[in-house]
Design a protein around this nucleic acid. Structure first.
Lengths: 216, 216
DNA sequence: GTAGAATCGAGAAATAATTCTCTACTAACA
DNA sequence: TGTTAGTAGAGAATTATTTCTCGATTCTAC
């Protein structure tokens, strides 16, 4: 079980598809089947079988001709590759609507993430509980992150204060930031930022809708 | 002001970047400046100026050498291209944590979307109000969508019921679906689906974090 | 005016991603 | 014990995307 040693990092497109396969595979595992082939996955997701084969290859899994992959082994292989097998502690900053929704996702720990505390600047929110986690004042974030060795930060504050919050996280030793604020945040080299801009998705959706209108 | 006539549809990568430029441009507009160049945007977002120039070109905007683009015109050009200038009605299905959070976004109508009603299957939720919108029973969705000429559907229900909800939306004449459920939904040709899988984003983030660990 | 610096825009080159093709292997079946 | 059909895996070909290069344009300063 030697780790794949990628000279170049895996492409973002592949990384985004792996969780989609994972969802499907788990659904299939529940039905009791033991193996699955790329052609079957491709059929189900209406995409190309070769692409799936290449995607799965990055996780280091080996399949057998005429049979496919061992389902349980494949799921595990994806989980290990994506880093879901080791649960990492996360702090969430911004206990508004979206932040609360994320705190309500109680399956994140199956996907490698444990949101251990929430932070907010609003004194009315501080001290309340959201889905079982107490909301702490934002100025405690950096110190606590360092003490608790928190690796991941989640930003759900408004855009104008996102950079400030990111700076707190970085100074607390956070190594990866999941940024839901629609703004660029600057971090030192080595800190990973994953932007999650709802307006970008909405833009894609509505542009396609507009383009479809235009064609008729 | 002739529309750009793309032989091929604009790439998803470009569509995703346009809203990011839009955010920055609006921030700059507030400072009172009148024009902006690709090099300035590139500097701010730490990316390539040529890429920005090509991205902006798809909207049909024209710039002037040595000056750049007229800021207000550029913002408008992006908004028109993305379909944000015409507000479309949307129904949201699934008034749970995430659904409520989306209903709380009160700026969507600036981005071409007006969520006019929410639907849910849970009788305890039906009849309550979430951020000013009454929650209606899911079996009314299709009929109302047709009557109100709703064009967009937002799915924030659990994965196992996502397909069923999508079918309701399609039968109600919805032409584009924003799917937050981590599962594939099947729709007839011509209906646009934009998947928004949080677990995919999380996968990207955590894999990069794991890979960074492995390198040390 | 004229020179120089900055920028757009278009096409070429380089890079990355996807899809195609072929070979070798495995299981089921006659 | 062949024979056949289905599949993984590797590499080639194709396609898409990003980056580079260069000429044309326009503003600023002298």
């Amino acid at each position: 079980m030697d780790e794949p040693k990628p000279l170049r990092p895996t492409s973002e497109a592949t990384l985004r598809r792996l969780p989609i396969y994972h969802h499907l595979l788990q659904k299939r595992l529940a039905t009791g089947i033991k193996t699955i082939s790329c052609s079957q996955i491709a059929e189900e997701l209406s995409c190309d079988a070769t692409q799936i084969r290449k995607d799965l290859a990055v996780t280091g899994i080996k399949g057998r001709p005429k049979v496919g992959y061992d389902l349980a082994a494949l799921i595990l292989s994806i989980e290990i590759f994506l880093g879901w097998s080791r649960v990492r502690k996360a702090f969430l900053a911004g206990a508004g609507h979206l932040g609360s929704a994320l705190l309500g996702y109680n399956r994140f720990h199956h996907y490698g993430l444990d949101i251990v505390a929430a932070f907010d600047r609003d004194p009315d929110r501080v001290g309340t509980k959201v889905h079982g986690r107490e909301v702490l004042p934002i100025n405690k974030l950096a110190g606590l992150a360092k003490r608790m060795r928190v690796e991941v930060g989640i930003i759900t504050v408004p855009a104008p204060v996102a950079q400030e919050v990111a700076d707190f996280m970085v100074s607390g030793g956070v190594r990866a930031i999941w940024n839901f604020a629609p703004t660029k945040i600057n971090v030192p080299a080595g800190v990973i930022v994953q932007n999650e801009d709802l307006y970008s998705s909405l833009g894609v959706l509505l542009q396609k809708l507009s383009a479809a209108h235009r064609l008729r």
